[in-house]
């Protein structure tokens, strides 16, 4: 197995200095997701304003892959309309579940393309998706609550 293809420099950079880390107010939904096979945990909050992702804040504990992917998630999705953010989410999930056969779209995923190599390591795909699944869950809750 090629370690360099798994641990791209971008991933290590985000791991050492995660962006948008910490839990902040205000928020409409908070979720706590765990990966029971390895013990990684994330508490994630979503703040939506007029259908746009205004903030994503989180407290995460886990491996470099899960920490970095949550950092990239926050970078990518903060400021985007929810619909567009969901499309980016789908693109990232597709990449991660593509067993390394999917060519990543840098225009959509930006730093997220660094995770293309993770898709070749089946045991680590769940690490990369932890924060992303938490975000989708929290956002879905926030949208439902907003509709009353």
């Amino acid at each position: 197995m090629d370690l360099q293809s798994l641990y791209q420099a971008i991933i290590l950079d985000h791991y050492r200095a995660p962006h948008h880390a910490g839990l902040r107010e205000p928020y409409e939904a908070e979720v706590h997701h765990v990966n029971p096979t390895c013990g990684d945990e994330v508490t994630l909050r979503v703040h939506l304003v007029d259908g746009t992702v205004s903030d994503i804040s989180y407290d995460a504990e886990g491996c470099s892959i899960s920490q970095a992917s949550t950092s990239v998630l926050a970078d990518l999705l903060i400021g985007k309309p929810v619909d567009e953010a969901m499309t980016v989410h789908e693109t990232f999930v597709e990449l991660m579940q593509g067993r390394g056969q999917v060519e990543p779209d840098e225009d959509v995923l930006e730093d997220g393309v660094a995770f293309a190599g993770v898709a070749k390591f089946p045991a680590r795909v769940k690490c990369a998706l932890l924060g992303w699944m938490a975000w989708k869950d929290a956002t879905a809750q926030a949208v439902v609550d907003a509709r009353g």
């Binding site: 197995m1 370690l3 798994l6 641990y7 390895c38 990684d40 886990g62 491996c63 470099s64 892959i65 390591f121 680590r124 690490c127």
Partner: peptide
Amino acid sequence: HPHDVSQVLD
């Protein structure tokens, strides 16, 4: 993190 340690060792 232990998962990263084990990946390098693997």
